[in-house]
Design a protein around this nucleic acid. Structure first.
Lengths: 166, 166
DNA sequence: TATTGTTATACTCTATAACTATA
DNA sequence: TATAGTTATAGAGTATAACAATA
C-alpha cells in the first residue's frame, strides 16, 4: 500500500527521460508545414469541434495561444470559423476538407513512424503501455484539479476522513 | 504479434495527453528559482558529472543550450567549472554544496507532489507504470538512433529481411 | 581537420495583461 | 459583471551558424 519515495523518484525521472526522447524524435521527423501544437489543435477540432473555448480547455492551453493557432490554421485554409448562432461572442470551429486531409497525413506519418520504432513489440505490450500512460494521465488530471486551490483546500478530504474515523 | 495502427494511434494520443497534463502540473507548481531545463542539468551533473559535452548528450540537448544553462547556474553559484587537466578544451562540471542542496529540494518537492497526486496507487502500480514508460523510452531511443540516417538506411533491415525470406 | 565550448540569432510554444464585443 | 475571443508583450526552451581555442 505504501508507495516508496524512491519509486516515485524513478517514475519522475522516467517521465522526464521519455519527454527528452520524444523531443528528439519529433525534432528528427518534424513535418515542415504543421507544428506539433497546431497538429494538436487540428486533432481536437476534428474530435470535438465546436467552440474555441472548449478546444482550449481540452488542449489545456490559454485562450490567446489557441486564438493564434486558429488564426494561423484559418489563414492556411485548414480550419473554418463561423459565428455561433446561439452566442454571438463565440465561434464554432471545423476542419476544412484540406484540414481533414492534412490531419490524416500527420496521423498516418506518426503512426507509421512509431510502428517502426516499436518493432519487436507485440499487441499486448503496446496495449499495456498505453493503458499505464492513460491511467497516469487521468490520475494526475483528476487530482491536480482537486488540489488546484492549494493544500489548504481540504474540504472534501475532511468529510471523508470524518467518515473513516468512525 | 501484429500491432494494430489504431493501437499505436491510441498510444500516441495518450502520450500527447500526458505531456499536456505534465505541462499543467509543472505550470501550477513551478519553482520560481530553477527552471525545469536547469533542474535537468543539475540532475545530470549530479548523477554523472564530468565534461559538458557528455552532459549535453545525456540531456539530448545541443551544446549552445547547455552552455547557456551552465553559465546561468554558474552565475548563481550552483555549478562549478574547472578545466579538464587532460584536455584543455573541455571543462569538468560539478555541483556546489548550494547546488546539491537546491537539487535535493527540487527533487523532494517533486516527489511529495507526485506522491500526493498518486494517492490511491499502490507500489505495484507505480512500479509497473514506471517500467512501461522506461521500456517505451528505451525502445524509442535505441531505434531512433539506428534510424537516424533516414528511411533510406536499410542496411541492417535488409540483412534481416533476407534471412526472414528464406 | 575535428572537437569543446561560447556567442549571436531565430524559432516554437506558452503565459499574462489589456482590449472589444456580447451575454 | 462575467465570458468569448483578439492583440501585444514577455518568457522559457530549443536549434543552427559562426567563432575561438585546443587536440
Amino acid at each position: 500500500m505504501a508507495v516508496e519515495p524512491q519509486q516515485v523518484r524513478a517514475l519522475i525521472h522516467g517521465v522526464f527521460d521519455l519527454q527528452r526522447v520524444l523531443r528528439c524524435v519529433a525534432q528528427e521527423h518534424k513535418s515542415s508545414e504543421v507544428g506539433s501544437a497546431e497538429a494538436g489543435v487540428l486533432r481536437m477540432i476534428s474530435e470535438f469541434g465546436g467552440r474555441a473555448v472548449d478546444i482550449a480547455e481540452k488542449l489545456s492551453v490559454s485562450a490567446p495561444v489557441l486564438s493564434r493557432h486558429i488564426a494561423e490554421l484559418h489563414d492556411r485554409g485548414l480550419v473554418t470559423r463561423r459565428p455561433d448562432p446561439e452566442d454571438r461572442r463565440a465561434q464554432l470551429l471545423e476542419l476544412t476538407e484540406t484540414g481533414k486531409a492534412r490531419l490524416a497525413e500527420i496521423e498516418e506519418a506518426r503512426i507509421s513512424l512509431i510502428l517502426e520504432l516499436l518493432e519487436g513489440w507485440d499487441e499486448a505490450e503496446v496495449e499495456s503501455c498505453a493503458a499505464s500512460i492513460r491511467r497516469l494521465t487521468d490520475t494526475m488530471r483528476a487530482k491536480s484539479h482537486t488540489l488546484k486551490g492549494g493544500s489548504l483546500d481540504h474540504t472534501e478530504t475532511t468529510k471523508e476522513e470524518e467518515l473513516a474515523a468512525r
